[in-house]
Structures are given as structure tokens and as C-alpha cells.
Design a binder for these strands. Sequence first.
DNA 1: GTCTATAGAATGATAGAC
DNA 2: GTCTATCATTCTATAGAC
Lengths: 213, 213
Amino acid sequence: MAYRKTPAVRDRLDAAREHLIERATAVVADVGWANASVTTVAAAAGMSVGSVYQHFASKGALAVEVFRRASGREVGVVGEVLAHGTGDPVERLALGVGVFARRALENRGLAYALLAAPAEPAVGRERLEFRRRYRALFAAVVREGVAAGLLPAQDADVTAAALTGAIGEVLVDPLADHGEGSADRLVAELVAMSLRCAGAPPVAASPDPEGPS
Amino acid sequence: MAYRKTPAVRDRLDAAREHLIERATAVVADVGWANASVTTVAAAAGMSVGSVYQHFASKGALAVEVFRRASGREVGVVGEVLAHGTGDPVERLALGVGVFARRALENRGLAYALLAAPAEPAVGRERLEFRRRYRALFAAVVREGVAAGLLPAQDADVTAAALTGAIGEVLVDPLADHGEGSADRLVAELVAMSLRCAGAPPVAASPDPEGPS
DNA sequence: GTCTATAGAATGATAGAC
DNA sequence: GTCTATCATTCTATAGAC
């Protein structure tokens, strides 16, 4: 008893917590969930292991918070483009898929951690929610596209789930394996596949004018 | 020294192990990874907890074996249709997707456990391999379709990954949630989406002749 | 008689209820 | 915050195969 946190202390604690989350995210992006030990994370944040446990009750709780922050950012950016970007629904879909893919390829380690890397069940639960949010965003834009007559009649929820799964799965291998200069080609391929998936009529690709068949 | 397992003992042990795996699979399909405790599994197999540890060094090792068996079966069935089924590559793709989806919807608990349910990292690693195998199967049939002029030019590996991810993701929600009589409609929707995704020209749906737009 | 498989309780860790 | 229930795993004693 007889101890009440002053605002100054509160602020310092909050800042330390934020810093810890930030550094932990970098570690996870770098070495993956499996190798992100509490010791490593603490060192990266410049604090002791004990201090880490001042902020989070367990390693799992920290992992969940890292996942939430990072996935929230990604969903936010993609959602912004899909919902409030410029252009008609189909253009926004193409743009959104491109942003999704390009961001993933620019931070492959983080994207892999969010999308596919084996992780403890608590993180797995967050991942389900993460994908659910993408599905909702895609479903809205597909519905718009159908309403505008730009896409054929379809079950928007099915297409949205398909897009979410397809994009995630396509990115998994390049994220884990090889892939360097081919990023642009991969993004273009992914956008084309997504438009096909939603039933948008094929458009002549911008940089590579090869007629199909 | 001086003790060598007789064939009879060996057989009995192998049979017990198989029985354990079988029952454990049923338990996982029924209550999920999270609720499949060693106690529950042992009871379902009609053996003691101690005996379970006679066959597997840890709960995780048993879980991995359960996953491998079940996923191997599913990949085998779908692969058979895709690779050696009747019809041209596009027909086989449609058939394969249909088989995938129908089997998942017929054993929702197991499909959810294989495709999406949060599980320990060791199972997550198996899941990556499981999806990799589907990708290889889809890639082969897409390549065939392109070679036969039935599908437009495309990166078969990208399309294969997209199909794997799309089908898995579309099935996740129906597997966890609602979904009863709508199974046939969902399968049809999924097949149609898959064909669009691979760029196959739209075919007039069989039971529901509604013109698009 | 020696070695193994089994059952079931003991142990230590963790999570959820209160 | 404390208490309780439940979990995975280990330990011990017995039954049974060699």
C-alpha cells in the first residue's frame, strides 16, 4: 500500500513499454518467433529480463502484443487504400493488393511472422482475427464492385476469404526463401491473380504488353 | 542384453500405437488441439496416461504424428484426383477443388484442425509442409492446363499457392461457425472461384442458370 | 529370473475462479 | 490477490513376456 504512481512515473513506464514492444517487433522480424527468446528481446531493448516481466506477465503476452501492433498497422494501411483510396472499387482492390504485397516484401521477416510462421497458440488466435479483418475489408470492396457492375455477381464473403488466403499463401514462400529482384514481377502477378479471382475483366498489364494466348 | 522383442510383442505394440493415433485423431477432430489433453486421449484410446508415453516421447510428438497421418490422407486423395483423375486439366482442377472442399465439410473438426486451428509450433511446421504439398499438386495441374492451351499464360507456382490459400481460408469460417445445408452452394462457389483464379473461361453453372449482371 | 509395458498416483507448472 | 482445478510429465509398483 501507500504507494501511488505519479504521472511522471506512469509516463516513464509507458515509454519503456512502448520501446520494448518496438524492439521486440524488430527481433521477431529478424529471427522469428522461435528464436526470439526473452533474453534476446531484453538485450535488444536495453533492459534486463526481469524488467521485461515488469511489463508483461509472460513471454506469450508480449508476443501477442507485438502481433497486435504489427498486424493492426498492416491492416490499417491496406484498409485505408481499399476503403478510402482513389478510383473505382476494382482499381482500389488492385491498389490494395499491391500495397499488401509490397509491404510484405519490404519487411519479409515481419510479414512471415504475421502470416505463416509457426507460433504458440495464443499468437495463432490473433492470426485468425488478423485474417478476419482482411476478409472484412476485401468483402466490402468486392461488394462495392458488384454493386457498381464492375464485377460479376458472386458471394463477396467467399471471394474476400479467397483473396486473403491467396495473397497470404503466395507471399509465404518468397518471404521465407529466395526472391530478390523479382519482387515487382511477383506483385504484378499477384494483382493480376486477385483481379481474376474477383472476376474483373483482364486488363492489359502496364509494363509488360504481352497479349495472353 | 538377453531380451529381444518377439514378433508377437512388436505387433501388439504397433497395433496399440496405431490405435492410439486413430483415437487421438478422432479426439482432435472432436474437441480441437487445445482441448485434446493427454488424459482425454488416453481415455479415448482405452489406455493409461503412462502408456501413451510408452509410444510417444511427448504430447507434441503425438500431435505431430496425428497431423501427419491425417494431412497425408487428405493430400493423397486430392492429389489422386488432380494428377490421375479423368478429364482435361481444368476439369481435374474443378474436381480436385470439389473433393478438397467436400471432404473438409464432411469432417469439419479435422479440417479445421489441419488448416487453421491454433496449435503448438511443431504442428505449425507440419502445416507449412502440408500446404507446400498442395501447392505442388495444384502447380502441376495448372502447368498442364497452360500447356494444353486451356488456361492463359501465368506463373503456375503463384496460382497454385493462391489456390491453396484461397481454398483453405474460404473453408475456415464455415468449418468453425455455422454452415449446414449450404455446403453444396459453398462448394460450387469455391470451384467457380478457383477456376476464375486460374483464368479458366467461365462455364455456365449447372444447377443455377442465372445470367450474370 | 530378468527385463518391459502398464496403470495410476505424485509432482510441478499454469490458468481461471473467486 | 489467493485458491483451486487441470495440465503435461515423471515416478513407482505390478503384471506379464521372455
